[in-house]
């Protein structure tokens, strides 16, 4: 019987992934039409396909401009950021064997935020901002890991506390940098950058976030079964022939690449990396081979929808970091309650 059961289990996971991909595509295309200048979804499809199949009514310069210059970069940015953060969170939760860690809890975001504000303070160019964000994001992760090994290597609570400590440390450094910044020009830039937004999305930012997310994300996805192995514990993994330290550092470096790139282009966007892997786990089970691809799809979907809300709910844009936290925290609370009540057979 089992062979068939396994076949069907694998097929149903595949079906869930295909459905998620379809929803993501649909929402992304629909989002191109949503905004102050409304375009119906049928028309959006017509405009997108115009190079292949010429549209029945010619495309106006405004439509062209709204879709390709304003909204497409923004939606791509939201998708890269959401998918990247969700994937990073899923990988970190597996590596640390703890479903409560996320990029923000582990201090990576705070470290990257410090790197970014420092770059603004020192008037570094955007490439410099990406560089300092990346370096300090990774540095924060190293500090968390070091502190955790120093206190209690096997204690999950000590790990979360180490993350809180390092987050707090870099939070203080960010405040220090803001205190030192001139209040006319640099301080507002820092504050708005930190709150997180896709409003300034352009092709340059896509070029900045695209390659790190695609390359590091692709490698993380290729390592997704290895993350299963790491998630059973160091000694067990070692006994199975896994080179635990090397693999863990490879994964942490890839995660820091993604988070640093995301923070550099769109500021701190919390809770996505924590909440989305939980949704994925509930939907498709804990096996990282299917759970990580599902996280990628749900993460992109989640941020595109939240960004739609951010730019349409009120006349002025609501900063994204505020919305993800406002929506993410109650969602997480509900998920946590569900997973505890469900007897833990899944997620």
């Amino acid at each position: 019987m089992s062979e068939n059961a396994i076949q069907s289990a694998r097929r149903s996971a595949g079906i869930v992934l295909v459905i998620l991909a379809c929803i993501l595509l649909l929402v992304a295309v629909a989002s191109l039409g949503i905004g102050r200048f409304d375009i119906p979804i049928g028309r959006v499809v017509e405009i997108l396909l115009d190079p292949l199949i010429p549209a029945t009514t010619p495309i106006s310069a405004v439509e062209q401009n709204v879709i390709f210059t304003v909204r497409l970069p923004r939606i791509l940015l939201a998708m890269f950021a959401g998918s990247g953060l969700a994937l990073a969170g899923a990988a970190l939760q597996g590596v640390f064997r703890n479903p409560l860690v996320g990029p923000q809890i582990m201090g990576v975001s705070s470290g990257a935020a410090f790197g970014g504000t420092l770059a603004i303070l020192l008037s570094l160019p955007r490439a410099g901002l990406l560089g300092t964000s990346f370096v300090f994001g990774l540095f924060a992760l190293i500090l968390v890991y070091g502190l955790n090994s120093l206190v209690a290597r096997r204690n999950i609570l000590a790990l979360v506390l180490a993350g809180v400590v390092i987050s707090g440390f870099f939070g203080a450094l960010v405040s220090l940098v803001q205190y030192l910044a001139d209040t006319e020009d640099k301080l507002p830039t820092m504050v708005f950058w930190l709150l997180g937004s896709f409003a300034t999305a352009n092709h340059e930012k896509i070029v900045l976030i695209g390659p790190p997310v695609l390359i590091a994300g692709g490698l993380l996805l290729a390592l997704r079964w290895r993350i299963n192995l790491l998630s059973v514990g160091d000694e067990d993994a070692r006994a199975l022939g896994v080179q635990v330290e090397r693999l863990r550092w490879l994964i942490l470096t890839l995660v820091a690449c993604i988070v640093a790139a995301q923070v550099a282009v769109s500021g701190i966007i919390g809770w996505v990396g924590l909440v989305v892997p939980h949704i994925a786990r509930m939907l498709i089970g804990p096996d990282h081979r299917v759970m990580m691809p599902a996280s990628v799809l749900i993460g992109g979907l989640y941020l595109i929808i939240i960004d739609d809300v951010a730019r349409t709910l009120t006349g002025t844009e609501i900063p994204l970091g505020i919305l993800t936290a406002l929506i993410g925290t109650p969602v997480f609370a509900i998920l946590l309650r569900h997973s505890q009540a469900g007897g833990g057979s899944r997620g």
Binding site: G94, I156, A222, V232, P286, D287
Partner: peptide, 23 residues
């Protein structure tokens, strides 16, 4: 284990030495 893997997922982990790293 911290995640509720299926029995087959657990047994499959025994194959770690035989599966190339990025596969």
């Amino acid at each position: 284990g911290s995640f509720p893997y299926s029995v087959l997922d657990i047994v499959l982990m025994g194959r770690a030495r035989h599966v190339p790293i990025f596969r």
